[in-house]
Simulated assay, not measured.
Amino acid sequence: MGLKGFVEGGIASIVAGCSTHPLDLLKVRMQLQGEANASKPTANAAVKNLRPALAFHTTSLSAPGSINVPLPPPPAARAGLISVGARIVQQEGVGALFSGVSATVLRQSLYSTTRMGLYDILKKKWADPKSGNLPLGSKIGAGLIAGAVGAAVGNPADVAMVRMQADGRLPPAQRRNYTSVVDAITRMARQEGIPSLWRGSSLTINRAMLVTASQLASYDQIKEMILEKRVMKDGLGTHVTASFAAGFVAAVASNPVDVIKTRVMNMKVEPGAEPPYSGPLDCALKTVRAEGPMALYKGFVPTISRQGPFTVVLFVTLEQVRKLLKDF
């Protein structure tokens, strides 16, 4: 009976992950916007501080022998969801929207299958034996545990997915050019060491705990409320309504952690060189200092655009798979 929950959750998660992969890729690209300035704030600050000391005249004409120190270029405007998508298609082709889809399949097979199956087990174990009901607090607790375990299992695929999705934004000479998720994981382990496969795992686990607790618990709770108040019958309309609401809650709760996770996982660590970020907290501080607090909600539009459809496809598929497998 316990294995059935893993199978149902795994099938639904893979279908949902593949169908919304382009939106996930756009989210990653948008979250990395402005990162170059965030990881190197001191260089820009030094240039800015030189000009007032050396530029004695503000006229456009320079005196012979004067020293001109150019100001750094203004930060590029943040591109929106449509412009980022259009740029990817124009520069990299339509197929680039599915970069890293093999990593998505592996990630959903490991991470989501584990969290969905474990949540189902805990929910049944903690439910009231007579009524079968489970308080919201217990649902959240089950989601936190299931999300943490699932993230720990699926982190290598998560790192590979982020890197494969972000690769196209780099200059050709700096691209990693992974051919598949297996190639990505193999090369990371060989070139950067096995621990690199769990880079950002603390963030992955924190994000997964937030997403699973908010997504699964809120879906169950909202669905129960709709049925109890007889707003709708148990059918497609109820599933879509509850799942979209759950997706919104999950997106709001997880986006800041998701931005930091994306940047830590994607950072390039050259041998003998200091990494751009010493850890998640350092990444968060540098990001906020260089780009402002709202930088933690970069990519929120594609996050909710992806999280909403993903959650809808996930739970609608899950309900259908449960019907198909009810006799097994």
Rank of each mutant, 00 (worst) to 15 (best):
E274G: 02
S99P: 14
T241S: 12
K223R: 15
E8T: 11
G34K: 02
E228N: 14
A160S: 02
A12M: 10
T179Y: 04
F56D: 07
R322H: 00
N37V: 09
L318V: 04
G272K: 04
V162F: 07
Q191A: 06
P256T: 00
M188T: 05
P293N: 02
I222R: 15
A246Y: 08
Q165K: 02
V259H: 03
L203H: 05
A213Q: 00
M209G: 13
P302R: 14
N206Y: 08
N44A: 08
R87N: 11
E319W: 07
P156M: 05
L23G: 12
D158Y: 12
V153Q: 04
A290W: 07
L61M: 15
L25R: 15
P74N: 13
A46N: 06
V159Q: 04
P195G: 02
L227G: 11
R87A: 14
L50Y: 07
L23N: 06
S243T: 03
S180F: 01
F310R: 04
V149D: 11
P41M: 11
P22C: 07
L25W: 14
F98Q: 06
R78I: 10
K124D: 15
D220S: 15
F6D: 00
G292S: 10
A152Y: 13
K48C: 02
F98K: 08
Q320M: 12
F6K: 00
V7G: 00
L324H: 01
S243M: 08
Y111V: 09
K229F: 14
A142G: 15
G85R: 12
A96H: 00
L318M: 15
A146E: 01
S66W: 04
R78V: 12
V252G: 01
S180L: 01
I88L: 14
M294C: 03
G200T: 00
P64V: 13
I14S: 03
R306Y: 11
Y219C: 01
Q90H: 07
M232L: 13
E319P: 01
K223Q: 14
A213K: 00
F6L: 01
L134G: 05
F248P: 03
M188H: 04
P309F: 03
M265T: 06
R190G: 01
D120T: 11
A189T: 04
Q215K: 07
M188N: 09
K223G: 11
A160R: 00
V69R: 06
H239R: 11
V257K: 02
F310E: 12
G154V: 14
Q90M: 02
G117S: 05
I222M: 13
T317L: 10
V181I: 06
R29T: 15
R187G: 05
A96G: 06
G80M: 09
L325S: 09
